[in-house]
Every structure is written in structure tokens, then in C-alpha cells.
Design a binder for these strands. Structure first.
Lengths: 359, 359
DNA sequence: ATCGAGTACTGAATCGATTTGGCATTCGTC
DNA sequence: GACGAATGCCAAATCGATTCAGTACTCGAT
């Protein structure tokens, strides 16, 4: 391993000068700086990060922690875009981004294993996680930003999509197409956004002066299987829905599957709208109409915020709410349903959940 | 931040003793050890990893580098299982596993950004990557294991699925069902395994004494879009294939789509077999028959090997070839095509590509 | 009582880089 | 030519943990 002393020797200066020259910190003669730079490239020198981090008391690195809803590939396909946004800004701001596969983080020891002391300056928490983890993180004093999640009653910065506006948009779209019996396939109560989506659905119904029918509202896990089962039972109703809004695309895929099994044609017999716009949604039969949230913006926002916190700049701030838009494809029929290219309709923002940074 | 000195003070011993007690290294009285342990938990002490890594000259951490074919969610859905296997063994062997989002790693500086000096002891390289990266890695002397990739002519340890046996298995299955015109939808030549899959396909054809028809062999990018296009042209042939083997499930999904567009029913008009068994494959219409490689085993094998290399145990060794099996679902018809539960058929291993560790 | 062999613990050096106070040297000005 | 200021570089301290040589002590055997 080539160290700073090797570079110093080759350049004929002291290690202190090498450090200053390479980091552009102190006062170093231009010619010396040049000599040092040449020696460094010649030796292919790269500073040992352990030494640097120890001395600087900064890792210049942030980590991404994943929650339990990261356990299916369908979710990956959503979060990978978010991650892309994060990577973009961390890099631009001189930080590196590391990522650890989902692991148990129930105990403090687990957390230590995942979150080596001194190796990261902050954490981006992706998706729903145990409240215990968040509390442990908070106790540790590490700057944290929640992404696509929030913890009611605990002041932690959170970047969240405007799921309420998204759900309203989807439902409005179905009503506009003439549907009166619109089913809601929501996430189980253990998921953080169950409330918002149901609220958006309710708002759209109310605006269309349509009474909510409790028989049309189902809440399940957010995967394909449970959504398939829920849709089966919905279609078996004496008065089945003519349209369905599912709060994830994976659930919408389940709904499509249940309809197919039963011989119900989409969109003629059942119109379907999903949410997330994952990669697969463009390839279902018919292609899925869905609500897309600005996933990359979400990642960028979260990373900016976290680094602001780390660098001490940020004080209380309102949680930005990431906008949603409707991607119209083939599962609802209507004027654009037959066209090849998708049409997108932006949502108007609603209520934003205000979340402030904890002291 | 609580340091080892704080623990030492509270336990009434020296930092050296704390270190030994906590790490179980030197000779420490049982009672002292206990006292130290209590002080540590009381203060919620966790060692600063920068200090430890500096002193130990070991990070006890490995990283996963991703290649360019990680850019779609369909691939994620494959690799996430591999990652799970890796995480399992790294944890069991006391290492942590970090992951960095795909980034440019063309230059040495890029590599330094991604691969902080001293922060990892080795790298698992997932999927196809630029040869330049591998060479840079090799030059750096960092232990490396390639996963689902290999570099002809360069001696780097590699764990690879038995794609040849898998392709043969898929093709044999189609022949057994009576098909004579079986199309091959392969990966573009720039992908590392194009040769193996084509070879397996050819072997099966030869065993069935069927001549290869060049018109039925297409090679494209491994995503949905290009496979859709290729299948369209295949179906437009004067004598179209009655069956098709695609070397990724994403491509098979494209084939399904092209068939649907053209009104060709699956499996009656076209039997389809994919490869990879990604999560979505169970939910296509009809559910996709596919070749599954032992993804988790691949990850476990690679991680074991890498850690062996790091710990200096390993010498030359043959690349293990990960077995494949056929998952029979609905896209081929035949006796099991209508059953709900999938049937799996293991492949016999063929040729293994022998790859040995470089000095 | 003395010696030798363990045992339990600690002081000091070390890992590799950064940072600060200070020492020369040069420069500009009167 | 002398003085104050600015410049360029470095010695030494520091970050937090580990490790090794060595010291102090205990215990059993002679």
C-alpha cells in the first residue's frame, strides 16, 4: 500500500505538505503543488479512507437503510429509481453512497453491524421500517431522512410522495370515464400511507357525489398474491365493481390476473388503475394505466436534505411533498386507451404532511 | 461519541484491556471481562470502525460492484436473490457487505471514489462489466470474484450459472413436446454468455437430429423491447416457429407481448420458455415456463470464495458451475401446463468453464 | 525464603492521514 | 538596510483502536 509518506518522499516534501497540496487546504506554492500531484499520480496514490475519516471526524459518506417492504422485486423496481436520484446528488456534493442489503436491525447490536460507527455521516431510510429502528437511529444522533415513509408523532425529516393527490387523480379519472362503482384496493393498515390513499379516493368520490360502498374497499398486503385474492372476492360480489384502483402496480397486476381467471375483460368489464409506474407496468396486457410519482425527485430531495443536515445548515423545514401524475395506458379504455403512447396528467398538490427536523 | 477510553475509565482498567476483553484476544480475568462488558453496554459503546480498520489493517467488509446490465429492474429482480445469498455468508463469516449504486468506473479516480482505499477487503463483481474495470481492480491487487460473468483470457475467479445446461434443458423440453421449429432468442454478442446458451440449444437440436435453421436464431439486447421486435419478425416468417426459447425472462415477456399483438395464442400457437425465473414470471399470462438457476447458491458460493481469498486460504480452484432446473408453468402446454403448481426438472451439468485465480 | 512459571494488566508504539502553531525565508516599503 | 507582513513549509499532536513487550503480582515447589 502506498501512503502519504511515499508521496512525500518522492516529491521531496513533508507529508503535511502533501496533504495540503492534494486537498487544496493550506498555502502551498503552485510549483510544489504540481510536483506533489505528479508524484501522487505516478504512485497511483489514493488516501486511506480510514486515516482520513479518523482525522477529519467525517466520513463524507451516507448510507441507505431499507425497510421490510423492500423484500420483493416489485418494490426494488420502484426504489431503484429513487436510489438513482440519491446517487446523483450525493456524488455532486462529494459524498459517497453505500447501501446494505436488508437485515435485521431490531437490536442495537444489529444496527451497529449495519451502521459501522464512523463510516457514515447520515442515513437515508427507504420505505417502511420498524419504529424501533427509527428510534434507535434517533437516539444515536445520526442525521436521518425518511423516504417514502413517515413516523406519526416523531419529528423526523421525511420526503414523501403526494399519495393523496395521486389516489384522487386515479379515482377522478375513473369517474370521468363514467364509472360509478369504483373499488379501492389499499395497503394493510400497517403500511404508512394507507390513510392518505383512502382519503384521496374518498375526496374524488365525494366530489362526484358518489357514496362510498364499504363492500368495495379492501386492504391487503401490497404484493400480487393477496391482491389477486381480494379482487377475486370483489368480482364475486352480487354487484361487482366496474373499476378498480390499486395503490401499487404489483396489486394492479394481481387484479388483472384475477379478472383474467374469471373471464372478465379489461378494460371492458373492469377498468384498472395502479400506482407507482414500475417497469413491468408498461408490459402488462393491456398496458397498465397508473399513477407515477416523481421517484427520482424524491431521491434527490432526500439526499439534499440529509447532506444539509449533516453540514449543519438545516433547521426546521416543511417536508416537501413529491408530486404525482397519471400515466394513461390501456387498462381503462376511454379515448386514449387504444393509443400506443401513454398520456400523462399531472395532479394538483393537496395537503402536505408537515414534518420538521428533531432537535 | 463514546470511545474506548470512556469505557476504560468506567471499568477502571486501561484501554488496552478493554480492547482485549471486548475482542476476546489476550488473557483477561473473567471478572474483569464482565466488568468491561457491563461498562460497554452501559455506555452503548461501539468501536469506531475507522480506528479499528486502521489498526487491524483489515476492514472486514466486502463490496458489491455492479455492471452495466444492472440498469433495468428486471435484472434487479434476478440479482437481488444473488445478493441475498451473499449477505447470508458474509454475515456468517463476520464481514459486512456494502453496495454502491452503479457508477462510472472507467478511470482510476472513479474507482477510488467507489472503492475507498481501506474500506473494503474485496469485491464481488455482479454481472457484465467493462473489462477496463476488471483490469483496474486486478492491478490494485484487491481480491475479486466475478459473479454471473467471466473474462476470457484473464484469470479471475468467477462463479457462473450453467447456462449451457439450462439452454439445453429448455430446448429439450420443447422438443419433447413435439416442436420441430424452435426459435432461439439470444443475447447480443456483447453479453458474456451468448455462446453458452446457443451451444446448449444446438446440442439439444443435434440430439433430436434437427437441423439448425439460421432464420430462427436472433440475438438482441436482453430487455423487453428488442425481444418484442425480434419475435414480431420471427412470427412474420413464411414458416414461423412453433416454439421459442428466450435467454432471459424479460425477453420471454417481450415474446409473449409480440404473440399477443399478432393474435398468436400461447401455448397453442407458440410455446415459450424463458430463463432466470424472475418474480414477474409467475404472473404473466399464461405463467411463464422458465429455466431457474440457483441464484442464492451463486451468491453464497461467490462470497465464500472471496472471503477465502481475503483470508489467504485459497489457491487455484475450479470455477464452480451453478446448476439450473426447469420450472414448468403454462407457456408450453403439455401435461403439466394446466396445473396450478409448477413442476421443476433439474438439469444435468455440462461443461464447466474452468477459471483459476490469478497470482 | 527463594526461584520459576504463570497470570493479569498496562505503557507505548502503531496504523495513515489531517491540522495547527510556528519557524524560516522572501517581499515590499520607507 | 531595516522592519513588518506575507508566504511556504514542516514538526508534532491528534483522531480511536489494536498489539506487543514488559512489569507486577500470585502461587506452588523446592
Amino acid at each position: 500500500m502506498v501512503t502519504i509518506r511515499d508521496v512525500a518522499r518522492l516529491a521531496g516534501v513533508s507529508p503535511a505538505t502533501v496533504s495540503q497540496a492534494l486537498n487544496g487546504r493550506g498555502r502551498v506554492d503552485v510549483r510544489t503543488r504540481e510536483r506533489v500531484a505528479q508524484a501522487a499520480t505516478k504512485l497511483r496514490y489514493a488516501p486511506n479512507l480510514n486515516g482520513r475519516r479518523l482525522a477529519r471526524r467525517r466520513a463524507e459518506c451516507v448510507t441507505v437503510l431499507q425497510g421490510r417492504n423492500m423484500t420483493t422485486a416489485f418494490n426494488d423496481s420502484f426504489y431503484r429509481v429513487v436510489l438513482g436520484g440519491m446517487a446523483e446528488v450525493t456524488q455532486a456534493r462529494g459524498y459517497s453512497l453505500v447501501f446494505t442489503p436488508p437485515a435485521d436491525t431490531a437490536t442495537d447490536a444489529d444496527l451497529n453491524r449495519v451502521l459501522g460507527h464512523g463510516t457514515v455521516d447520515g442515513a437515508l431510510v427507504l420505505g417502511a421500517v420498524d419504529a424501533g429502528l427509527l428510534l434507535a437511529l434517533r437516539h444515536r444522533g445520526l442525521p436521518v431522512v425518511l423516504v417514502d415513509n413517515y413516523l406519526p408523532g416523531v419529528d423526523l425529516p421525511a420526503v414523501i410522495p403526494d399519495y393523496q393527490a395521486g389516489a384522487r387523480l386515479a379515482t377522478e379519472h375513473l369517474l370521468r370515464l363514467g364509472h360509478r362503482r369504483v373499488a379501492f384496493l389499499g395497503a394493510a393498515v400497517s403500511y404508512p400511507f394507507g390513510w392518505q390513499t383512502l382519503e384521496g379516493y374518498g375526496e374524488a368520490l365525494a366530489a362526484g357525489t358518489i357514496a362510498q360502498d364499504p363492500a368495495l374497499i379492501r386492504r391487503t398486503e401490497i404484493g400480487v398474491e393477496t391482491a389477486t385474492a381480494a379482487t377475486r372476492s370483489l368480482l364475486a360480489l352480487p354487484e361487482p365493481p366496474t373499476a378498480l384502483f390499486a395503490v401499487t402496480d404489483a396489486m394492479a397486476i394481481g387484479a388483472l390476473r384475477a379478472a383474467r381467471e374469471r373471464g372478465v375483460r379489461v378494460p371492458e368489464g373492469l377498468a384498472v388503475v395502479g400506482m407507482d409506474d414500475i417497469e413491468m407496468s408498461a408490459y402488462t396486457d393491456p398496458p397498465l394505466t397508473t399513477v407515477r410519482v416523481a421517484k427520482d425527485a424524491m431521491g434527490r430531495l432526500a439526499a439534499e436534505w440529509l447532506i444539509d443536515l449533516i453540514e449543519g445548515g438545516a433547521v426546521d423545514r416543511l417536508a416537501p411533498s413529491v408530486p404525482a401524475e397519471l400515466v394513461v395506458r390501456g387498462t381503462c379504455g376511454g379515448p386514449t386507451g387504444t393509443r400506443a403512447s401513454a398520456v400523462t396528467i399531472p395532479a394538483e398538490a393537496t395537503s402536505t404532511i408537515s414534518t420538521t427536523e428533531g432537535a
